[in-house]
Amino acid sequence: MALHKLTASLFAVMALIAAAVIGLTGTASAATADNGHQSFAAQAKQAGLTSTEAKQLQSKVDGYLATQGGKQVAANKIELAGKGEIVVSLPGERYARDLTSAAGTRAACPYENFCMWTGTGFTGTQYNLWQCQTYALSNWNGPGSWSNNQTPGTRARFLDRYRNTIYTTPGAYANNGNYNWAPVWYVVPC
Rank of each mutant, 00 (worst) to 15 (best):
A8H: 06
S9Q: 13
V13S: 12
V13R: 14
V13H: 13
A15S: 12
A15M: 15
L16T: 09
L16I: 12
L16R: 10
I17H: 10
I17D: 14
I17M: 12
I17P: 04
A18F: 12
A20V: 06
I22Y: 09
I22C: 11
G23L: 08
G23T: 10
L24M: 15
L24A: 15
L24D: 15
T25A: 10
G26D: 08
G26A: 15
G26F: 09
T27V: 12
T27Y: 08
S29K: 09
A31S: 11
A31W: 14
A33T: 06
A33Y: 05
A33N: 07
D34W: 11
D34E: 13
N35Y: 12
G36A: 13
H37Q: 11
Q38L: 13
Q38Y: 13
Q38F: 11
S39R: 03
S39P: 07
F40Q: 04
A42R: 03
A42Q: 07
Q43V: 02
Q43H: 02
A44W: 01
A44H: 04
Q46H: 14
Q46F: 11
Q46D: 15
A47Q: 02
G48P: 05
T50V: 05
S51N: 13
S51K: 13
S51L: 15
E53T: 00
E53K: 00
E53W: 00
A54H: 05
K55C: 00
K55M: 02
Q56G: 07
Q58N: 12
Q58K: 06
Q58P: 03
S59C: 05
V61G: 03
V61N: 01
Y64I: 01
A66Y: 05
A66S: 11
A66K: 01
T67Y: 10
Q68P: 03
G69N: 06
G69F: 04
G70K: 02
Q72M: 08
Q72F: 08
Q72W: 05
V73H: 05
V73K: 04
A74K: 02
A75F: 00
A75T: 03
N76Q: 06
K77R: 13
K77V: 06
E79T: 10
L80W: 14
A81T: 12
E85T: 04
E85V: 02
V88T: 05
V88P: 02
V88K: 00
S89M: 03
S89I: 01
S89R: 01
S89G: 13
L90P: 05
P91H: 02
G92D: 14
E93R: 05
R94L: 15
Y95L: 14
Y95V: 15
Y95D: 15
D98H: 11
S101P: 06
A102D: 09
A103H: 10
T105F: 12
T105E: 14
T105D: 15
A108M: 12
C109P: 06
C109Q: 07
C109L: 11
P110N: 14
P110T: 14
Y111C: 14
E112A: 11
N113L: 03
N113F: 10
F114R: 00
F114I: 07
C115M: 07
M116C: 07
M116D: 10
W117T: 06
W117G: 08
T118C: 09
G119P: 03
G119T: 05
G119C: 05
T120Y: 01
T123E: 15
T125R: 00
Y127Q: 10
Y127V: 07
N128H: 08
